[in-house]
Design a protein around this nucleic acid. Structure first.
Lengths: 343, 343
DNA sequence: ATACGATTTTTACGCGCGTAAATTTTTTAT
DNA sequence: ATAAAAAATTTACGCGCGTAAAAATCGTAT
C-alpha cells in the first residue's frame, strides 16, 4: 500500500494508465470494462486505496443512489427502531440512506426538506410531524421528490403511504380487554401531535359502540414529545381524582402507558391481569421497552419489519417507475396483540 | 410568488439582473454587496424562492459548514438524546449537522467515515463503537478530518475527547450505597462493547478496596446492543442461583438495570430502599427512561448538556485552529447522583 | 469637470465526477 | 486477409457553485 494521497479520479486514472471516464465506468459497473483494464484498475485500487467522492458523483447524475429518511423525533425509540430497519434496508438495496430527525419542530422539518433537495435523492421515506407540519411545504416537496410517507398519513401527499392500521390495533385491544374483564376507558393526550392518535380515538369510540358499551375518554394535558412524563402526570391526576367507570385503561400509545405505569407504581396501585390487581393497563405500539415495564405491558404491536420492508419496496418501485405512480398507494398493516402481564 | 422553477444560481442571477458571483457573494454574506444590489436580490428572492444547492456549495469551498456526527447505536435512547443535543448545538452555531449511526457494526462505521470524507466536513463529532472499532481506519480518518471524540475514548485518537468521568460515577454510587446499606456487587456484561464499562469495573474494584470491602463482580453473558434483554436474562440467572454476598446491586449501566428490574418484578423480588425491600438496585447513566422504571432508578447522571456543549465548543475551537491542537485535550465531566426509589 | 483610490462586479477558471458523442480497438464474418 | 459490426475507450462538455484576478463602477478630492 503506497502512501501517496490521491486527490481525484483524474490522478487515479493516470496511475491506472487509463482515462478517467473508463475509471468512472468501472465504478458504475466493474463488468462494463474489458477484463484487462479491469485488472489494471483493481491492481491500482489495491495499491493506492482511492474512493470516488460521493457528492461529486451525484452532482451530474440523472439518478443518484441517495435515499433520504425523515422521522419526526428520533429520540423516540419507536422511530429510532423503524429508522434503523429502513436504513438497513436501503443499504441492502444498494442505496445510501441519510437520516434526519425533525426533533419535533416544524421549522426544522422544512429545512430538512430543503437540504434533501440539494442531495437530489432518488427517493425519500418521510414520516411527517403531523398536525404541526407545514402542509404547503410538504406538498411542494412531494411534487419535486419521489416520496413515500410512512407512520403518519397526510391525505393525498406523497405517492404512497405505508403504515399501521390503527383500527386493527384498537379493535384487538378493546376486544381482548372487554372479553377478559371490564371494557376499557381510553387514555390519551388532549392535543396529540401525531394523526394516528386521532384515528385511534375514533376507532375506540366505534368499537365501544359496536360492542354496546359506553365509551369513556380521558384526555390529559401536555405538549411536546415527553410522552412518558405527560402520561405519568396525567396518571397521577387520574388516580388521585378517582371516579373511573372502569378498572381497565387503554392508552393511546406505549410511551404514555410507560408513564402511567410508573405513576401507578408510585401510588401503590397494583396493575395486572390477576385477580389481586387494582387496574389493568394496555396500550398500542409495542415500543421497544414495553416488555421491560413492570408489569410487562400488554399491547398491540406494529409489524415493524413489514412496514419497513414494504415502505422500502414501494420506494424502489416508485424509483423504477420514474417517480410517479398512476394512483396513490396506501397500505396498512394490521396489529398483532401482545399479551403480557399488565392486562 | 411566481411559479417559475429556478434551476440554479445562474438563472436566479439573471432574474436579479446581476452576475452569478455577486449572488454567490450575497449568500455568503449579505452585507458584502451594495445596498442597491442587495435590494434587487432580496426582491427576487421573495418573488421566486430559490435556494443554493448545499452540496455544490461545498464542492469548491475551503471550509464547509458541515459537521458530521457519528454514534455507535442510535436506537439507544442515551445516544439519541446526546445526538439530539449535539445536532441542536450545531444548528445554533450555524453549521449543518449530518447524523450517522454505526448500528453496532464495525464495517458500517468504516463506511460512514468514507462517506464523511466526501462530505468534506469542517469537523466531526465521533463516538466510536469501541472494542470492535477498526482502529487503523479511525486513526487514518482522524488524520484527514478534524475530529473530536465523545462518549468512548480511544487513546491518542482525534484532537480531543469529551466525555464523562466514569470514576466519578462509580465513586458516588458506591459511596452512597455502602453508606446507606450493604456495599454493592457489580452487575455487568462479560464482554462489554463500550470501553466505559471497563473503566467502571476498575473504578468499582478500586472504590471497594478503598472502603475496605470485598468486591463481587457478576458478569453476565450476551452479545450485541440489546442490553435490557441481556440484563433481564442475567437477572433471572442471578436471582435463581442465589448466593449473593449482598442485597445491593450496582449495574454498569441503566439499560442493564432496566432489564434487571423487570426480572426482579417478574420473580417477585421487591426492589427499593425501604426496609421491606429484598434488594437495592442502582446504576449509571441516567438514561432518559430511568425515572419511569418501577421503582424509579437511582443512578449517576451524565451531564448531557455539558458534554454536548463542551464537545461542540471544542470542535468549533478546533475548526478555528485549522484542525489541529498543539496537544490532545481531554475533558471529563463528573456525574451527579440521582436518588430515586430503587436504592 | 477630472483624476484618483476604494469598492463592487464581472470574467475566467476550478472543484470532482457523469455522460453523450466521437474515436479507437477488438471481434466476427466472408 | 479484409471489411464490417460490435465493443471499449477517449474526447468534450456539463452539473451547480466558490473564488482569485481583472474590469467596471463608485465616491471623493481637487
Amino acid at each position: 500500500m503506497a502512501d501517496v494521497k490521491i486527490k481525484n479520479m483524474e490522478e487515479f486514472a493516470a496511475l491506472c494508465g487509463v482515462s478517467r471516464p473508463t475509471v468512472s465506468k468501472y465504478f458504475h459497473d466493474p463488468d462494463s470494462v474489458r477484463p484487462h483494464t479491469r485488472t489494471r484498475i483493481e491492481a491500482a485500487l489495491a495499491e493506492y486505496d482511492y474512493r470516488p467522492n460521493i457528492f461529486a458523483m451525484n452532482q451530474n447524475r440523472k439518478l443518484t443512489k441517495n435515499i433520504g429518511i425523515i422521522v419526526p423525533f428520533l429520540a423516540d425509540p419507536y422511530f429510532a427502531e423503524i429508522a434503523r430497519n429502513l436504513e438497513q434496508n436501503c443499504i441492502a438495496a444498494g442505496y445510501r440512506p441519510t437520516l434526519y430527525s425533525s426533533h419535533g419542530q416544524d421549522t426544522l422539518e422544512v429545512e430538512i426538506m430543503d437540504s434533501l433537495r440539494s442531495l437530489k435523492p432518488a427517493g425519500v421515506l418521510f414520516a411527517p410531524l403531523g398536525r404541526i407540519s407545514d402542509r404547503k411545504a410538504i406538498e411542494a416537496f412531494c411534487r419535486d421528490v419521489p416520496t413515500v410517507l410512512f407512520d403518519s398519513n397526510i391525505a393525498d401527499m406523497g405517492e404512497a403511504f405505508i403504515g399501521s392500521d390503527n383500527h386493527s390495533f384498537v379493535m384487538q385491544t378493546v376486544e381482548y380487554l372487554s372479553r377478559t374483564g371490564e371494557p376499557p376507558c381510553f387514555f390519551e393526550m388532549k392535543t396529540p401531535a401525531n394523526p394516528n392518535a386521532n384515528k385511534r380515538r375514533t376507532a375506540y369510540l366505534n368499537m365501544m359502540d359496536q360492542i354496546g358499551c359506553d365509551p369513556h375518554v380521558i384526555q390529559i394535558s401536555g405538549e411536546g414529545w415527553s410522552f412518558e412524563e405527560i402520561g405519568r402526570l396525567g396518571g397521577f391526576k387520574m388516580i388521585d381524582e378517582g371516579g373511573l367507570p372502569t378498572n381497565t385503561i387503554l392508552c393511546s400509545n406505549d410511551r404514555l402507558a410507560i408513564g402511567l405505569l410508573s405513576a401507578c407504581y408510585e401510588r401503590g396501585v397494583k396493575v395486572g391481569r390477576k385477580s389481586d390487581s387494582d387496574m389493568r393497563v394496555a396500550s398500542h405500539d409495542d415500543h421497544p421497552f414495553s416488555r421491560f415495564t413492570c408489569p410487562a405491558l400488554t399491547t398491540a404491536a406494529h409489524d415493524y419489519t413489514s412496514v419497513a420492508d414494504h415502505a422500502m419496496d414501494t420506494l424502489l418501485q416508485l424509483i423504477d417507475s420514474g417517480g410517479r405512480f398512476d394512483e396513490r398507494k396506501e397500505v396498512l398493516f394490521p396489529a398483532r396483540l401482545i399479551m403480557r402481564e399488565s392486562a
